[in-house]
Design a protein around this nucleic acid. Structure first.
Lengths: 123, 123
DNA sequence: TGCGAAACTGGCCGGGTGGCCAGGACCGGC
DNA sequence: GCCGGTCCTGGCCACCCGGCCAGTTTCGCA
């Protein structure tokens, strides 16, 4: 019964590092049932690699700021973030303040938008 | 020199469709120089597949809501939005309320994040 | 050993946010 | 005509947010 169910899986690549892209392309190039997408072709899945050293450039967030930022991006309030991280609301505000500063944002919504734009976080 | 540089490429999977995830996992499972990441393990690249049919669908925002949403994504406050659109702050709140409702968000930051995720707006 | 960075906490306060109530105007469809 | 949707406005209020002041500990580095 329809073992013709071998629709090739078409993958597209979005990789910053050319060397890595090359290696992946050659590794994946000759696997049955799998194909790399032609430029512009619609793929069912995308392989993306962000080199953490390449992306953020010089934004340099601390570990805690990353935690707070991630929760902000989920719409969490300061109170929720505090509870989630087991710290006080004051401390959360402290980190949020630093985040607004570093991301050059006017508010938390702006901060999340900027961070997403720069690839610091993924929505 | 040092073509011993054959560090395994660690891939993580973020795929909505379980069947597709399964097929990919088995296809990629036995390729030399390539490995799937253990849960929580840091990967150099991610394979992600989002079914576009699941995403946008029928969110159906009104023209005014789109205006407000766009300005929200830029970090504008209700007051700023009101000034920009030439309407009162109350009206802005009214639209923001509808937006939170339609986007199933708990606040403006969450609303912008959801909208971006679904492709309603572009950051 | 001192010094800065990171992380944490507190109080205070003006202004922003979101939810509730109420209303009115316009316009297209049944 | 009447109804529903969109858009607009007002008041009220509890809560949240961001910025200011202050302090603590821990850690690594010079």
């Amino acid at each position: 019964m329809s073992e013709d169910k071998a629709p090739e899986i078409v993958l597209s690549l979005e990789i910053d590092d050319p060397a890595l892209a090359d290696r992946l392309a050659s590794l994946l190039g000759n696997i049955a049932g799998l194909r790399l997408a032609a430029p512009g072709e619609q793929a069912v899945a995308t392989i993306l690699a962000r080199d953490p050293r390449i992306m953020p450039e010089d934004i340099a967030l601390t570990l805690r700021e990353m935690d707070v930022l991630a929760l902000m991006a989920e719409g969490a309030s300061n109170k929720m973030i505090a509870r989630r991280l087991g710290i006080s609301v004051h401390t959360v505000k402290f980190h949020v303040g630093s985040l607004l500063d570093k991301l050059d944002a006017t508010g938390r919504t702006d901060a999340v938008a900027h961070a997403a734009r720069r690839g610091v976080i993924e929505l």
